[in-house]
Design a protein around this nucleic acid. Structure first.
Lengths: 230, 230
DNA sequence: ACCTGAACACCGTTCAAGT
DNA sequence: ACCTGAACACCGTTCAAGT
């Protein structure tokens, strides 16, 4: 929960209209649901208002404008990242956190798109960073390295959710495979030969873990090196 | 050049109107310029038409609809990635390519945003991938590893351009620093202590190179390992 | 055949009018 | 004081009317 939003409206006038909205947060979730399913451009105030049982203008009591609604959506989505990490090895802890980020972000592609437009320092997002920094610091990284490392992992999770999670993975792969193998081999020798492999890298757990392992392996190596030196 | 667009309109009726558009590509570049500077939402057909000296409806002779204009913009931006790599060490070659991607993408933030909505297999983009795959294959990676590795590097370049290149870097850092250091230290001990370091990771070459080195170092290690084994 | 202005169906938001 | 419907200033795109 981000703030003490009014949760007591429903009892007052519940029967009228469909699914009457009770709070900023509930409206933000409804907005997320619409734009995750139909695309961010299909979210409009009139549609959202109907969804939560308000007049279009009624929304402006909860959000000053659409931009503020967007902020609420990002805040809602970032609440969903799991921050209870397994005990034990720091590599497994950080891997679990980054995997959890990706899962949550893939569920809310529109939140990723909104985050792209402007950094949003919501409490949910800060909690994730705090958890990641803490895991890395406890592993033995100095403060500067830990912050740079977490930012890199954070970027990787966002990138995977943003670019490696198409709405229709199978269709995307098929299209990519067809396009690549139809290229002129004299100018695109590698891609025509690797059409299948390239299509396979455009989504999926295997690709995600490949990159995550690259990052974590390097970090481990640096930690060992600094431990040997200092 | 992506296709043989008509380049000979200017001579026909050049004097009328400001900067009369001569081709699909020139219009796409004008659209990129507008949306890179003022944000993708500020790009509209009426404004673009005025910019290139056409009536609003005149644009529809070049692009069937706005979506097709978007495609043209992504195609134009991907032409700008440098694919002439330095001779020598594969690590320097691949680093140069990924750095070049980031530079080009940062110049065209709106193209990154558009690419997010849908994969776009333009010739310029495919040329970049072909170059990267070729560099990795020549270094000795097998086909499957080379494609997964390039996809990871590709993701990293896009993520850096998308999330680590704010329109106003200094203001973003200042805001982040202020927000983080104002957090309650009992619940956010790491972030309040690392506010300066965290703000520094939100943009800049140092952060970019940190992550790029993590990836390239790991790849080098795998190459050595596979060479020792096979 | 080519181009265009008026028009239509939207959408975010203001504002005066309701209770 | 709270809510809302009409209205305004947009925007993408259709379509009939111009040349």
């Amino acid at each position: 929960m981000i703030e003490g939003a009014p949760m007591n409206r429903r009892s007052a006038a519940a029967e009228r209209g469909p699914a009457r909205a009770a709070s900023r947060e509930q409206i933000a979730w409804a907005a997320l649901a619409i734009s995750d399913e139909h695309g961010i451009d299909s979210l409009n105030m009139r549609r959202l208002a109907a969804e939560v049982g308000l007049s279009p203008m009624g929304l402006y009591r909860y959000f000053r404008n659409k931009e503020e609604l967007y902020e609420g959506m990002v805040a809602a989505a970032s609440e969903e990242v799991a921050v209870d990490l397994p005990e034990g090895d720091w590599r497994e802890r950080i891997r679990a956190l980054v995997r959890g980020m990706r899962v949550a972000l893939e569920r809310h592609p529109s939140a990723v798109e909104l985050r792209l437009r402007r950094p949003m320092l919501t409490e949910g997002a800060l909690r994730v960073t705090e958890t990641g920094l803490s895991a890395l610091r406890n592993a033995g990284f100095d403060r500067a390295t830990a912050t740079r490392a977490f930012r890199t992992l954070w970027l990787y999770a966002f990138a995977s959710a943003a670019f490696n999670a198409p709405r229709a993975p199978e269709e995307t792969r098929r299209l990519a495979r067809a396009t690549l193998s139809a290229l002129p081999p004299d100018r695109f020798p590698e891609m025509t030969a690797a059409a299948d492999e390239a299509a396979a890298t455009m989504s999926g757990d295997e690709q995600f873990d490949f990159g995550l392992d690259l990052l974590v392996d390097s970090l481990e190596r640096r930690l060992d090196a600094s431990g040997a030196t200092g």
